[in-house]
């Protein structure tokens, strides 16, 4: 199991959901499962799920967040960034 602890998260750069990750919608948000490292992560808001699904359509995480929750930008930068260490998202 290798985790990208050394990867630095830059919200002004383009990121995407890992191709090894499946999302399952739930009432509280979604479950994210990484088939490679077998980590199960609880995504605790539907907005966060919408942002993750749209990441690849934007040239930065900042833009993806502002398209969904412009008023809660900083909180969501933190929430998206927290998914780097479990390899749920990766740089592209």
């Amino acid at each position: 199991m290798s985790l990208s602890t050394s990867v630095i998260f830059d919200a002004s750069a383009p990121w995407s959901l890992s191709s090894q990750v499946s999302l399952r919608d739930e009432a509280f948000g979604a479950l994210a499962y990484h088939h490679g490292n077998r980590r199960l992560v609880f995504l605790k808001s539907r907005e966060l799920v919408a942002i993750l699904r749209s990441l690849e359509n934007f040239s930065s995480v900042n833009e993806a967040i502002d398209a969904v929750v412009p008023n809660e930008h900083d909180r969501y930068v933190e929430a998206v960034g927290a998914l780097v260490k479990s390899d749920i998202i990766c740089g592209r």
Partner: peptide
């Protein structure tokens, strides 16, 4: 709060 939501059941088991 997440645990409260889990207690109401998920779309499928974990």
């Amino acid at each position: 709060s997440l645990r409260d939501k889990f207690e109401r059941g998920l779309a499928a088991p974990i």
